[in-house]
Computed example of a mutant assay.
Amino acid sequence: MKKTIAFFTILLSVINIQAQENIDLLTYENTQDINFFSTIKNGAQVKEYITTSKNSVKVGDTLILGSPTSEELNTRTYSGSYGNKARGGIAQSRSTSKKTYEFIQMGRPAGFGSIMSAVGGDAQNMADNSLKNTRVIVSEIKTYHRGSKNKPLYVVMVLGEINGRAFGINKYLSVMDTELGIESGEILLKNRKMTRDEAIAKLKEAKELVEIEMMSKEQFDELKKELAPIINSNN
């Protein structure tokens, strides 16, 4: 009897480990629920992720890169010279800047340490403005703890090239925090659901159009009916 119990205990442990490493559906609420995230291992593979705004992202989905939200500044100092002799005390500085993504890194995540460095704001090889409006495919979705195993999860997406287009010397990009990447507009989702704030703003704009007679009362009422479920939601 004891051997049978031990066998099933080991079997359940194996099943549990497999569940920790592969997640069919992960929601934002799961990532914040200690009863759930405390059972998840760093680097667990996710097939589908439901964001805080109830949008779905699946492995194989096509996304579009939005606009970069950061700027990289490089400053170089040059010393003037006559022949081989530098002019003492005379130097010039030249600064150049380029728009870069804050949450989209070139290449695949190079291990857990690299991921934590990126989330912590340390310097990484970030994608730049040349990739704006590029269509990409979701190759992998992974989830990691924000520190120890008793910390909430965040989601990393690995984006692949489409139609053989390479990202420079890289074949992949990494979205180091999916929620922030979407919220900032650096990642544009296909069939993205309108947020409550966006619905309110659209309805306010429509009301102004009615007041200046650029929209009929009937059109406004129809739009109000369409937006009501979003505005009345708890999100």
Rank of each mutant, 00 (worst) to 15 (best):
residue 224 K to V: 03
residue 115 I to M: 05
residue 86 A to M: 02
residue 91 A to D: 06
residue 225 K to L: 11
residue 138 V to Q: 01
residue 139 S to C: 04
residue 134 T to R: 03
residue 206 A to P: 01
residue 30 N to S: 07
residue 169 I to N: 15
residue 165 R to W: 09
residue 132 K to A: 14
residue 88 G to H: 06
residue 77 T to W: 02
residue 211 E to Q: 15
residue 153 L to F: 01
residue 152 P to D: 03
residue 79 S to M: 09
residue 164 G to W: 11
residue 11 L to P: 01
residue 71 E to R: 07
residue 53 S to E: 15
residue 17 I to P: 05
residue 128 D to T: 12
residue 54 K to H: 14
residue 74 N to D: 11
residue 87 R to F: 08
residue 17 I to E: 08
residue 44 A to K: 03
residue 113 G to R: 11
residue 92 Q to L: 13
residue 62 T to M: 10
residue 53 S to F: 13
residue 79 S to H: 13
residue 17 I to K: 05
residue 86 A to I: 06
residue 178 T to F: 14
residue 230 I to K: 03
residue 94 R to E: 07
residue 114 S to I: 06
residue 39 T to F: 07
residue 202 K to S: 12
residue 100 T to P: 02
residue 126 M to Y: 03
residue 38 S to E: 03
residue 5 I to A: 14
residue 53 S to C: 12
residue 205 E to N: 08
residue 223 L to G: 13
residue 162 I to D: 13
residue 50 I to H: 05
residue 37 F to H: 06
residue 117 S to Y: 10
residue 64 I to M: 11
residue 112 F to D: 14
residue 166 A to Q: 15
residue 167 F to I: 09
residue 83 G to M: 00
residue 20 Q to D: 14
residue 221 D to E: 15
residue 142 K to G: 04
residue 193 K to A: 00
residue 47 K to Y: 14
residue 118 A to G: 05
residue 173 L to S: 10
residue 69 T to G: 14
residue 73 L to K: 15
residue 28 Y to F: 14
residue 211 E to M: 11
residue 149 K to W: 00
residue 193 K to W: 02
residue 128 D to L: 06
residue 207 K to W: 01
residue 7 F to C: 11
residue 118 A to M: 02
residue 85 K to F: 04
residue 40 I to G: 00
residue 203 L to P: 06
residue 38 S to F: 00
residue 39 T to S: 15
residue 137 I to H: 07
residue 198 E to T: 01
residue 16 N to Q: 13
residue 16 N to K: 13
residue 209 L to N: 08
residue 230 I to Q: 01
residue 43 G to I: 02
residue 134 T to G: 00
residue 64 I to A: 07
residue 162 I to G: 08
residue 198 E to N: 03
residue 172 Y to R: 08
residue 12 L to N: 12
residue 122 D to G: 07
residue 149 K to D: 08
residue 46 V to A: 02
